[in-house]
Simulated scan of single mutants.
Amino acid sequence: MKYTTEIIIEAPLAEVIHKMDSVENMKHWQKGLIHTEHVSGTPGEFGAKMKLHYDFGNRKMELIETITKRSFPNEFHATYNTKGMHNIQQNYFDSIGENQTKWISKSEFQPTTFFMRAMLFLMPSAFKKQSAQYMLNFKNFVEQGLSVCDN
């Protein structure tokens, strides 16, 4: 399944990228993220791998992020692998005014198990909703300093 999500952030591109390019900030906009751990490569650079640990109450999840392109301030691409799913993310950032940044995120989910294939087929809106929510959380973090850790 492929889809594109976009959002306008009321902040200059440099500020958006500064906050995006921080592992420490991830917990403020990715609800459920407990901690991260470096796996291999130079952190934040092309080819680097990081394990992300999430806790969604009754469901725990680990993802391995692999950076596939890092061309800030305009692009950041990565893959995310977890049991049953391979996710390809392509993120584009564009200054559309002195104090506005457009973030476009292209997502592709490739299920690797029958169960996840069924989930993707039966509930595609859940994946799209989660992507849009993370983008809104990031927007609120940048614009208002709101953190999902405070909820």
Rank of each mutant, 00 (worst) to 15 (best):
Y3H: 15
T4I: 09
E6G: 08
E6P: 08
I7T: 09
I7M: 09
I8L: 04
E10W: 02
E10A: 08
L13V: 07
A14T: 13
E15T: 15
E15S: 11
I17P: 08
I17S: 02
M20Y: 12
D21L: 03
D21K: 05
D21G: 02
S22I: 07
V23R: 14
N25R: 05
K27V: 14
W29Y: 09
I34G: 01
H35S: 10
H35F: 12
E37S: 13
H38S: 15
V39G: 14
G41W: 08
T42M: 05
T42G: 05
G44R: 05
G44Y: 05
F46M: 12
G47Y: 12
G47C: 08
G47D: 09
G47S: 11
A48G: 07
K49I: 13
M50P: 08
M50T: 15
M50N: 13
K51C: 09
K51V: 12
L52C: 04
L52V: 10
D55C: 01
G57S: 03
R59Y: 03
K60A: 00
E65G: 07
E65I: 11
T66M: 06
I67P: 05
S71M: 14
S71T: 12
P73G: 11
P73S: 07
E75K: 14
F76A: 00
A78D: 06
T79A: 00
Y80E: 04
N81D: 06
T82E: 02
K83E: 06
G84K: 02
G84V: 01
H86T: 01
N87M: 12
Q89H: 09
Q89P: 06
Q89R: 10
Q90F: 05
Q90T: 06
N91A: 03
N91W: 15
Y92S: 12
F93W: 07
F93P: 07
D94E: 13
I96S: 09
G97N: 06
E98T: 13
Q100E: 14
Q100A: 11
Q100C: 08
K102A: 11
W103C: 14
W103K: 10
W103M: 14
S105F: 09
S105K: 08
K106A: 11
K106D: 11
E108M: 14
E108I: 15
F109K: 02
F109L: 04
Q110G: 02
Q110T: 04
Q110N: 12
P111F: 00
T112P: 08
T112C: 05
T112S: 07
T113A: 00
T113L: 01
F114P: 13
F114M: 09
F114K: 02
F115T: 04
M116E: 01
R117T: 01
R117F: 01
M119N: 00
L120C: 00
F121E: 00
L122K: 01
L122A: 00
P124M: 01
S125N: 00
F127S: 01
K128A: 01
K128F: 03
K128M: 10
K129F: 03
K129T: 04
Q130P: 12
S131L: 12
S131R: 15
S131Q: 14
A132Y: 04
A132R: 08
A132L: 08
A132N: 13
Q133A: 09
Q133E: 14
M135N: 11
L136W: 09
F138E: 13
F138I: 13
N140P: 04
N140W: 10
F141I: 07
F141H: 02
Q144L: 13
G145C: 12
G145N: 06
G145H: 10
L146D: 12
L146A: 06
C149E: 10
C149R: 03
